[in-house]
Amino acid sequence: MCTSLTLTSNNQQHFLARTMDFGFQLDGRPVVIPRNYAWKKQLEESQETRYGFVGTGRNLDEYFLADGVNEQGLAIAELYFLNEAKYSSEVKEDRVNLAPHEFIMWVLGEIASIAELRERMTEINLVEKEIPLLGFVPPLHFIITDRTGETVVVESDSGELVIKENPVGVMTNSPEFGWHLKNLNNYLSLQPNNFANKKIGDYEVQPFGQGSGTFGLPGGYTSPERFVRTVYLRSLVDADAPLNALFKVLDNVTIPKGVNIKNDGSVDYTQYRAAFDVTNLTYYFNPYENQEVFELVLDEELLNKKEPIEFEYDRKFKTTGLH
């Protein structure tokens, strides 16, 4: 699962935010990958990063990130794309061959903008290669934004990587992105204002109370429901305080432990939430265990480190007394 969205503040700061919803305990934590770091690919020789970046991930023999922003202000997040993602079954000599979960490392370490990604997308061949920790090939698609505020989706439902324009700035999971856009046609009646009273013969029908305009807004945790709910909230939320607005929207799609159980008995829940200020290169991380939001600025000191850095965080729920 997972939900992602972009948001532009009233003073033109651009953000990407996401929930990480998963049944397997990923133990994601803040990670900085510096410039000129040679990371090991599963299918071919190591590759050196042109750009440094910060995101959420782990060291699994090599670093694996699920999201991040690089020093050029390009941000990306991967989300589950069950029954839709299609990958190559073989390595291609004229391509950069990557396991699907390595695409983020390549993008953040190599690409400065969506315009450059368009030019270089044909260099990449995603090959069916499993994540060692999970023991299977994750079906993934990706949401990407940059300092211009443009947002795109990258999907491989056709077997080749395709960039799709994202005019609503939201992405969830399957089906493919175009289906979600068409599905919005079913929710044209949603509005922030109450519906007007209506006469039926001599009887006047009126709303029960405030919020009648949101009648029919989906409330479940399926991918289509979360997509519609997030598009509606994003389109209307006050962007004066963009970071606060992002987390308020994410609150509406954050999954508590115990309410969403998979067929294998594992508990799918929001393990963390992250937000990226692509304008100011700032990373915000909120783990499931507490309400704190941890902040990290991608500065020159971090970018010039010799090795990646993982950051620990306080996992205890805290309260603050009133004075």
Rank of each mutant, 00 (worst) to 15 (best):
T3P: 07
L5V: 04
L7V: 09
S9C: 06
N11Q: 15
Q12H: 14
R18W: 08
R18M: 06
D21Q: 00
F22P: 10
F22G: 00
F24C: 03
G28V: 00
V32I: 15
P34T: 11
Q42R: 12
L43E: 02
E45D: 13
E48N: 09
R50N: 15
G52A: 07
G52T: 07
V54G: 07
G55F: 06
L60N: 04
D61T: 10
Y63P: 01
L65F: 01
A66V: 12
V69F: 03
G73D: 06
G73F: 09
G73W: 04
L74E: 03
L74K: 02
A75G: 07
F81R: 05
F81D: 04
E93M: 11
N97T: 10
N97M: 04
A99Q: 00
A99T: 03
E102G: 01
F103T: 04
F103Y: 15
W106K: 00
V107A: 13
E110V: 08
A115Q: 11
E116Y: 03
L117F: 12
E123A: 11
V127W: 05
E128H: 08
K129G: 03
I131H: 02
G135I: 10
P139W: 00
I144A: 06
R147I: 09
T148A: 03
T148G: 03
G149K: 05
E150A: 15
V152Y: 03
V153W: 05
G159P: 12
P167E: 11
T172W: 02
S174T: 14
P175K: 08
E176M: 08
G178D: 15
H180I: 08
K182F: 13
N183D: 12
N183F: 07
N186Y: 11
P192S: 10
E204G: 06
V205N: 05
Q206Y: 09
F208M: 14
G209T: 10
G209H: 08
Q210V: 14
Q210E: 14
S212Y: 05
F215V: 15
P218Y: 05
R226H: 06
F227D: 04
F227K: 04
V231K: 04
V231L: 01
Y232T: 02
L233M: 13
D238Q: 08
D240N: 13
A241C: 11
K248Y: 09
K248Q: 15
V249S: 01
L250A: 04
D251I: 06
V253R: 09
P256L: 12
V259P: 10
V259S: 13
I261C: 07
I261N: 07
D264C: 11
Y269Q: 00
Q271S: 02
R273E: 15
D277Y: 05
V278D: 07
P287R: 10
Y288E: 10
E292I: 10
F294S: 07
V297L: 08
L298S: 04
E307Q: 13
I309L: 14
I309Y: 08
E312S: 15
E312G: 14
D314A: 02
F317Y: 13
T320R: 11
L322N: 13
L322A: 13
H323Y: 12
